[in-house]
Write a protein that binds this DNA or RNA. Sequence first.
RNA 1: GGGCAGUUAGUUCAAUGGUAGAACGUCUGUUUUACACACAGAAGGUUGUAGGUCCGAUUCCUACACUGCCCACCA
Length: 734
Amino acid sequence: MKTDFSKPYDPKLVEPEIYQQWLDSGYFNPDNLKIKSLKIKNYIVYMPLPNVTGTLHMGHALNNTLQDIIVRYHRMRGYRTLWLPGTDHAGIATQYKVEKELRKKDTSRFELGREKFVEHVWRWKEEYGGIILDQLKKLGVSADWSRLRFTMDEAYAKDVLAAFVHYYDKGWIYRGLRTVNWCPRCGTSLSELELEHREDQGTLWYLKYPLADGSGSIVVATTRPETMLGDTAVAVNPKDKRYAKLVGKTVKLPLTGREIPIVEDLKIDPSFGTGAVKVTPAHDILDFEIGQRHNLETIQVIDDRGKMNENAGEYAGLKTEEARAAVAAKLQDGGFLENKEPYAHNVAVCYRCGHVIEPIPSTQWFLKMETLAKNAVKAAKSGKVKIRPENFEKTYFDWLLNIRDWTISRQLWWGHQLPVWFCKNQTEISNSQFPISNKNLKLKIKNSSAEDFVVSVKKPAACPICKNCDMVQSVDVLDTWFSSALWPFAGLSASDRKKYYPGNAVITARDIINPWITRMIFSGIEFMGKVPFSDVFINGTILTKDGRRMSKSLGTGVDPLKYIEQYGADATRFAVVWQATGQDIHWDEAAVAAGRKFCNKIWNAARFVLQNEPSSAALAKGGNAKPQTTADKEILGKLAKIKKETEKSIEQFEFAKALQNLYDFFWHDFCDVYLEESKKQLANKDTEETTKAILTATIGESLILLHPFMPFVTEAIHQNLKSAGDEFLMITAW
RNA sequence: GGGCAGUUAGUUCAAUGGUAGAACGUCUGUUUUACACACAGAAGGUUGUAGGUCCGAUUCCUACACUGCCCACCA
């Protein structure tokens, strides 16, 4: 495309057309690159999957710009370069969003039923799920769109289910009744990584539990008196001398009269409260673990909607907050309330909807993490994968070395249904999420070993258990991260896996080191036998100028598309990279304006050179660009130096440094100094031709160096240089 | 509670064991035939606080304060 070099540079006139040309060229697909030799190395970057619910925010803009830089750089260096894009079905986020929409239309997923609801989400995904991809294209992202994958594509889903079967066959997946973090609004279990914590002004209540033998009482502290209805023990620390003589005795639980034991447990902190804790295995995860150790009963008094159930007697049907007040009042009347004081503490809330988490018992599926975590640790310790900046290795190791088994089931409708098939005759209750919710008053928790189900990707033709039922699939779906953990290979076709696995780099934000990076690493090792990539780079977090988090709900976000519209994609890319020097970026819009000015500077410098191109392309190619003057020598020396520096910086993921050095070179060394000097040299017959050749060679080389950072303006200029030939700058040899 | 990072010009950030740099902003001048989204020049900083090591610290060490994030979750 020959561009009209009217001034100044107008990104709107060139960006859409250039991007279309790149798409049409097919060069985003490594199979179409003109690779000279089979020995040429691959360079593969796995894109962090944007959610189908997502729209582009500054974090995406930064993250994808950095990836695009390293991808474009390697493509120009001649690598067989693949940037693999995809979208994530984002179970809870998407379901939440679609449900919210349904609510506006005065209906709900329950009214639609599962099948219709899932169809509805698919239609929603077809309509809106690609928005973010179009936005990425505006940014200039050079991913191979022909390989785009969605985590619920048929082929991808097959790999997800096969992974489940694989783990099950290894004996690493088990099913158990556990007290888990439950969001009453979303109606699903949540993993620890899906919780957020919010400070809550509550009350610390001191409850007096009388000893059954009438010899006194023991006082426990709690923020949730209503759960006392489900207490099945009082626990103290074995080292706590104050209570030593009480251990083994029983107390008579107020209001209910139930007798419950006093037990010892090391997890109790003697210095907090009274040092004695009420134990409610059904409604507290730590208490559940204590219950397991002491073989305590689990009595559920709160249901999956966050209301008191029939085990709560007269309080049944009340919301927990209502029950809290009622129970506290009753305790006070009965003389069981020793004291109360205001108390600020953290409550866990759902990361998605913000509702307070209610720990409740339910049947969930778990993946044993011991070996997987060990493998992931080994991969980083041995240097097979390198995490940069290095201090993030600590985040990685800390989590893996203190790993708990992974709750992989979610009670959602949108996602990969577990490849688990239940015998209809054997048990109906097994397939229910709440085997204990309504009926059972008391129950000892045991991990069921009863084989009333079969694990298989496909539905078994005949039930191997009762021999004559039509088996039903588990209603649970898998944690979204279970599927995205497989991205480096499940995102590739079978033949691509041979060619393009393992890859090289992942660039992402620090908050998904644990949910995603660690899991991709152990999944890659487990299923492909190789660490999926050698480099992890953690990019900074963009905050507002005054250091607050950017968020839609706070109204503190800024829209990268607005910048692209107003200043151009290159200017936007310039701004995010320019500022990406540390862990946190205090976003300054002024940098975008600076980026636009730089585009214009490049544009105008090119105009000057174009007016002074050597008469023939051959000359311009630099054959006779031998320096004659000091200025000539200096600029060529600086050019060679900046080239080396840029290579080094990019390869070390020091993008801001690379860009700032390039900026300095181009603006000050080239434009301010050489270009000005060249005006004199052009006026002199003796130096005219050499100067033209050096100008052309320098601008040509500068465009190459700048291209990964500012691809549009450089490509547009390149196509107007006589010396450039017909090939795209995008694939011009570095 | 534990950890990580940061605190330098008006603002956003660099840099260095030996008198601190850029971008943007500000001020002065310039329509010099690539660019006023420009050019030439200028002002602007006892480098968070308090100690310590050193001939010398903004840089290394210690403590403290503040900010952001991550992890844990004490009932």
